[in-house]
Amino acid sequence: MQIYLPIAEMSVNLFLLVGLGGIVGVLSGMFGVGGGFLMTPLLFFIGIPPAIAVASEANQILGASTSGAIAHFKRRTVDVKMGLLLVLGGVVGSAFGVELFGILKNLGQLELIIKICYVFFLGIIGLLMFVESIRALRDIKKNKKRLKKRHHSWMQGLPLKMRFRASNLYISSIPALVIGFFVGILAAIMGVGGGFIMVPAMIYILGMPTKVVVGTSLFQIIFVTGTTTFLHASKNFSVDIVLATLLLIGGVVGAQIGTRLGLRLQSEQLRILLAILVLSMCFKIALELFVAPQEIYLLLRRI
């Protein structure tokens, strides 16, 4: 059954979209990843224009993160004060990213930049996941636990120190603002929540305790993807509500299945498969950038 996407101005199979949403939902439920960095490239592969894919995916992530954020909020595993700082940085970053997005689009270089970003980040995430899961497997065998580094010495010297009760920290607010800003740009340009950057940054740079990390990152993602959706819709007219809703329907159902599957299966072993999937997507996009294109000339709509 074909469905016409009013903003993308193209016709796509309805079940393909819901199915893609579902598969990515299962993966994100299983591994606790947001799924934006999986979904947006998949949308490129099925022919959705990158500008529409990115903006609509930000909208979808907003919906997909809502239930998780509510659950963490109820369990009080959100550092609201830290979250608000990350949101502040994120909103500014998002506004900056959306502006940049519009400029790049008019220059005709948007696709290129989005794809370069994806090759870069998918490559890094894939490799890290791969190494991490192999190490984790080895650690299970040797029954060792690795220690985490906390508190970098250079951070102690930064001004604007604040107390964060929930995280039991007294640190400068500048790193949180910078991390938020960076994640905001990624949300606007890549259509991702940015959890994959934020979660490690909160643990390793800010030194936050792991129990509040996921909740706080979801808290930030909700506000930043919301802002990104609004700005893309009003500046670039590139949010396709029909696309986002269909992906969301598949996504929320898939995430529930994934969460239940994740509890039963050994996710550390499956994580290698996810790493391989991420690396192969990185490879496919890289090919498009480096291999001679079939069509040398192209026409693009101006907004």
Partner: peptide, 14 residues
């Protein structure tokens, strides 16, 4: 439209 997109997504998630 942007606000509608936001509310629709949150509504579905909720």
């Amino acid at each position: 439209y942007g606000l509608l997109a936001i509310f629709l997504a949150i509504g579905f998630g909720w």
